[in-house]
């Protein structure tokens, strides 16, 4: 059996979530990778070095300069016939185009898998991770998105795949990219950071996030947030951790002024060590925290920064 992994990249380098997806794909046998981009030669070379990838398909065309679902799904479909399984990371990019691929192939997509039990059976969380379903697919082809935190990353170096150019698919032409407002930060990305410190409604304002950022800088950590903190405008939307935000599983997760709603826990409860700082000793976050500190965050967080 051969699996195809759709690579997430910025035309230069490959995103970490792709490496975890390659690990999941290895369960099917041979692994190929598809890089669709514009001026994406460097990303294709990077993909060819991923351990376990035997062939890289490259579609280099202006229509893939931005990952528009209408265009991406078309190029994936143009090669889909050759594969038993097609996998993409369950990022906002993978979630966007993969169901279109599945619909055209008349296949039920298996979203956000956390384990490959066998070639047709997978585990995936449902109900905000309050239950884990084992599902068996009767479709001939498997269309899968992968929860990156659930799989080890394949080594980014060591492979030497062949690289083959494929032609771009016919342009759908029904959508166009207008622009983006991307958060710029020198800190690590949330989904790949080893340490994350997140703030919730208890932070009170965006200005107050400075005390969290000071800790983050000392620890080399990423900064996250609860939905309430994002809704209140303290921090941008891409900080949100949770069922409907980012799923993270760092070595250390520090939750500050976050109550611990199930939707937030869904995004971080697989972290190795959880620390909670909250002034309410009854806050549900303490039920999952390895180390809980009942304290006013405006005293505890600056003290933490000094102690590091």
């Amino acid at each position: 059996m051969t699996a195809l992994v759709i690579v997430e990249h910025d035309n230069v380098s490959v995103k970490d979530a792709t490496l975890a997806t390659v690990t999941a794909a290895k369960a099917f046998g041979d692994v190929h990778a598809l890089v669709a981009g514009s001026g994406c030669g460097a990303a294709a070379e990077a993909a060819a070095k991923i351990d376990g990838v035997s062939k890289v398909l490259v579609a280099d065309d202006a229509s893939y300069a931005h990952p528009l679902a209408e265009e991406l799904s078309a190029v994936v479909l143009s090669v889909a016939g050759d594969y038993d399984a097609i996998l993409a990371p369950a990022t906002t990019m993978g979630k966007n185009f993969m169901p279109r691929v599945a619909a055209s192939l008349d296949v039920a997509q298996i979203s956000d898998i956390i384990e490959v039990v066998s070639e047709d059976t997978f585990k995936r969380p449902i109900y905000a991770g309050n239950a884990i379903a084992t599902v068996q697919s009767s479709d001939a082809k498997k269309i899968i998105t992968v929860r990156a935190t659930a799989f080890d990353k394949a080594a980014a170096e060591g492979g030497s795949a062949s690289v083959e150019t494929i032609s771009a698919a016919d342009k759908a032409g029904v959508s166009e990219y207008v622009g983006a407002e991307l958060s710029k930060s020198d800190r690590p990305e949330l989904t790949s950071a080893k340490i994350i410190i997140s703030g919730g409604r208890g932070m009170g304002s965006g200005e107050n996030f400075k005390i969290i950022e000071a800790v983050a800088d000392k620890l080399g950590a990423a900064v996250g947030a609860s939905r309430a903190a994002v809704d209140a405008g303290f921090v941008p939307n891409d900080y949100q951790v949770g069922q409907t935000g980012k799923i993270v599983a760092p070595e250390l997760y520090i939750a500050v002024g976050i109550s611990g709603a199930i939707q937030h826990l869904a995004g971080m409860k697989d972290s190795k060590i959880i620390v909670a700082i909250n002034k309410d000793e009854e806050a549900p976050i303490f039920q999952v925290a390895d180390y809980g500190l009942v304290a006013d965050l405006f005293e505890a967080v600056p003290a933490l920064e000094k102690a590091l």
Partner: peptide
């Protein structure tokens, strides 16, 4: 989107 906001 994961990196922030995008308009199409």
């Amino acid at each position: 989107v994961d990196g922030g906001l995008e308009t199409v």
